[in-house]
Amino acid sequence: MKIKKIMGMIIVLLLFLGAGYFLLRRPYQEYSLNLFYMDTYIQIKFDTKKSRDDVKKIKEEVTKIYQDYHELANRYTEYGQNVYYLIHNTSEEEVITVDPKLYELLSYGEMAYQESNGLLDINMGCVIDKWKYYRERKEGIPTDEELESCNSVNRLVLLGENQVLNNHPNIDLGAIAKGYATEKVKEYFESVGITSYIINAGGNVVVGTPQHKDYYQVGIEDPNDGSVFKVLKVTNQAVVTSGGYERFYEYEGHKYHHIIDPNTNYPSEYMKSVTIITDDSALADQLSTTLFLMSIEEGKAYIERYPNVEVIWYSNDDEIIMTEGVKKYE
């Protein structure tokens, strides 16, 4: 009888061991990270075979990159000598030395200003605030006097060596900071050997090479009804859309959105949306705003100086106009 019991126990034990061995080991791992910075939900997914500790470090580092740029580019809260500080400081000093990362970002903004012939201007903070005030009330529009009062605001002056003239420029980095920070995250991923990743920073999408399929499928939202009007098959690209349909308000039968044309100080109305596909997320962010601020015809000519940049315009007449190269992503 005793032998029987022992035999039984051994068999049960072996059963568990056998099943346990089979249930062991998983060769693939997908990780995700959800953040909220720069007024945006940022969803990140990546695949790696790295250890748990490494993944934890990577997540912390990515969080830190977004947090840093969130703080540096913030114009409503003070975090050290950030954009808020540049605008509102009461210091008597003539120059302010800023974090090299912020200086680099501001320089990038200046460069984008030059490249866009003044269309993409990071000195628009004052005008943007005026519009924001009415947008949040969902009523009225800024008066001409209000908008003209912004003309007296100083422009940013970069002095080199991380120094900025303390002339209280009203900086708004909203058009470039997200794409810029995302590009930094992408560079970081690549530096640690992660190639399979997808970052969705509030509709600014950046993808690497997926580990388990041929490409990522990125849809582009239809400005009219929020559906998807086009699906792109992309690897190692940024897909960024600018449009007036996400943040806007209606007043006296007219829609006013958040992307302001510096020439008129009014929201631009050349198109419903424009989408940029290129491998550099900062460039994609920059160009999507730039192209949104010029007519489709001008945009077609303008974009020719940029190789490997593809564009999809969604015109006011609901026409979809694409550059030749978009085909390769269809």
């Binding site: 072996l14 061991l17 056998g18 099943a19 061995y21 089979f22």
Partner: peptide
């Protein structure tokens, strides 16, 4: 269990399936 010993292999997948 005997089939496992003789043919399918003890504690292989087919063994657990049969069980």
């Amino acid at each position: 269990i005997l089939m496992g010993l003789i043919s399918t292999g003890l504690f292989s997948i087919r063994f657990f399936l049969s069980l």
